[in-house]
């Protein structure tokens, strides 16, 4: 088709729209991530508390939000909550749904990280008369953070990718913009392709950024695997499907 040569050109002329959509994606994702972290930390503490009622309530929340589709959670937040007297804008409903969903996963991730600290160390700390605060901040936290850091970063990326569902509640984030540009230009491959590339760039920025941050704050450095890499096997570009096995001969 003679349109093909100007296809990418036409779509790229909408770059402003795509970037404003990307900005909304980033805004809603960051906001949701912050709230999800708070939910995760409080929820993990509740799950480890000695009060059974706290453990049960948070347990039910985790089960519901991990075992139902995110899209349905988004619809309930946007279309269902107003019926209960809580009208949210599409941005707010999207942030709430994403935060509630990711928060459930983070509760389990953080709880697992805390539980992974060998209980023998807690006993030793008690024997050495360390205060509870000191025990937590100097013994438990440094070890737990090493365990939870890669899955938490991964959850952040999942939030960014999950934000594409918010196009269904008319939020003009990146996927919504791609749909609109597609319906205006009818250049499906280029419109959605451009959005895919932008998502890929954002995911890579998060991965690489978290690797760098991890290299700075973790001594010794974290082992390779998940979204972090050890020294000497650093992944600078995450290309889906090619980064499975570490290659010992060449770098990437």
């Amino acid at each position: 088709m003679h349109h093909e040569s100007t296809g990418w050109g036409t779509v790229l002329s909408h770059t402003d729209q795509f970037l404003s959509g990307l900005l909304i994606t980033v805004e809603v994702s960051v906001l949701a991530f912050i709230f999800a972290l708070i939910i995760g930390i409080l929820g993990a503490a509740a799950r480890r508390s000695r009060f059974r009622i706290l453990r049960v309530i948070v347990g039910i929340y985790v089960e519901i939000f991990r075992n139902t589709p995110l899209l349905l959670q988004v619809f309930v937040a946007f279309f269902g909550l107003p019926a209960l007297g809580l009208p949210l804008t599409n941005f707010q409903a999207g942030a709430v749904a994403l935060a509630a969903n990711a928060g459930a996963y983070l509760v389990e991730i953080i709880r697992g990280g805390l539980a992974a600290v060998p209980p023998g160390q807690l006993d030793a700390a008690h024997v050495l008369s360390l205060t509870r605060t000191d025990t937590f901040s100097r013994i438990v936290l440094p070890q737990a953070i090493r365990k939870v850091y890669p899955p938490i970063v991964n959850q952040f990326v999942q939030i960014v990718l999950g934000s594409s569902l918010l196009s269904a509640i008319a939020l003009p984030e990146l996927t919504g913009v791609a749909q609109t540009v597609n319906s205006e230009t009818l250049l499906t491959l280029q419109s959605f392709g451009f959005a895919l590339i932008l998502y890929l760039i954002v995911s890579n920025i998060i991965s690489v950024g978290s690797n760098l941050l991890g290299a700075v704050i973790f001594h010794p450095p974290l082992e390779a695997g998940g979204r972090s890499a050890g020294k000497g096997r650093r992944r600078w570009l995450i290309i889906p499907g090619t980064n499975k096995e570490p290659r010992l001969k060449s770098g990437v």
Binding site: F79, A83, A168, A170, P172
Partner: peptide, 14 residues
């Protein structure tokens, strides 16, 4: 801008 008319109707009704 909604994906389909049912969602848009839902938006007005709610």
């Amino acid at each position: 801008a909604y994906n389909d008319d049912t969602s848009a109707m839902q938006a007005v009704k709610s």
